[in-house]
């Protein structure tokens, strides 16, 4: 059993406080949804958990099975069992997906003997052409392919806790189902006989959650969890929107990101 414990986490970007005391715990096999309006700081939470440069932790703690994650460099957080599926996966010219996974496995002391077959198997399950994995990381991939690629990497690396940052953005219905089912399965069965995956699913919409069923839903606004409930909270949010928390929102000072057109949710509604 693994436990990611976030306690009173506070963080700033370029001197501007964004997270104002986040507290939540994700355990093996649990799916937690973090839902909130744009600018609420929920993506900042994912970056801070993984240690992205430019984000300063100003208070609180994050532990994974008792180990202080915040004192570790990014790669050691990953080796400790944390995975971040990025909202906008970075293109890395000239670097093949396989080489990255191979180096990650070597650093973990895992054998790379089965890497080829494991990658091929996961790519097939997630519906990503294995040929794309010979290309440079994320270069010339469509938005949907990038998200499938993130999921293949997740499945090969076999983390204990996965943070999925807007995994649903840019995905068509088929891709959304493929990706969500793979992760749902990991949260039930784990990888390779290991403990089931714990997932922290950051999302703006309810769409992903119809495939990837949350145990706990957190409403995130103004840099902290405002309300926590069961799956019914996601349904309620879909009907009521985030109006209740709109007055708390402040412009997010996080690095500016492109707006992704979501063909299924014009203006945030069906």
């Amino acid at each position: 059993m693994t436990e990611l414990v976030i306690e009173d986490l506070q963080a700033s970007v370029a001197g501007t406080p964004i997270l104002h005391g986040v507290t939540l715990t994700v355990r093996s096999g649990e799916v937690h949804a973090v839902m909130g309006p744009n600018g609420s700081g929920k993506s900042t939470l994912s970056h801070v958990l993984m240690g992205r440069p430019g984000y300063q932790v100003t208070g609180g703690s994050v532990t994974l099975d008792g180990a202080d994650l915040l004192s570790l460099p990014t790669w050691e957080r990953a080796q400790a069992g944390l995975f971040l599926a990025q909202q906008y996966p970075t293109e890395v010219p000239g670097v093949a997906v396989r080489d990255v996974l191979s180096e990650a496995l070597v650093a973990a002391g895992r054998s790379t003997a089965d890497l080829e077959s494991l990658v091929a198997e996961e790519a097939e399950r997630i519906g990503l052409s294995a040929a794309l994995l010979d290309r440079a990381m994320n270069v010339d991939l469509s938005g949907g392919e990038k998200k499938r690629n993130e999921t293949v990497q997740l499945a090969v690396l076999q983390p204990r806790i996965a943070v999925l940052d807007e995994l649903d953005s840019g995905l068509d219905v088929d891709a959304l189902r493929d990706v969500a089912r793979r992760i749902e399965q990991a949260t039930n069965d784990g990888f390779d006989g290991g403990p089931p995956l714990g997932a922290l699913v950051i999302t703006h919409y309810n769409r992903l959650l119809t495939e990837l069923h949350p145990d706990v839903v957190h409403v995130f606004a103004a840099g902290r969890v405002q309300r926590t409930g069961g799956p019914e909270l996601a349904t309620e949010l879909e009907e009521s929107g985030y109006a209740e928390w709109a007055h708390l929102s402040e412009p997010e000072a996080a690095p500016s990101r492109p707006v992704v057109d979501d063909p299924f949710f014009a203006g945030g509604t069906l």
Binding site: R52, P53, T74, W75, E91, V92, P93, V95, V100
Partner: peptide
């Protein structure tokens, strides 16, 4: 961003840097 991305997969810092620099030329 490239460095962070590779490290977020569990690739140690110097290995990630080497992959990126070698990949820069491999293009």
């Amino acid at each position: 961003d490239q460095q962070f991305y590779l490290e977020s997969r569990g690739v140690p810092t110097p290995v990630a840097e080497r992959l990126i620099v070698a990949g820069f030329f491999d293009e």
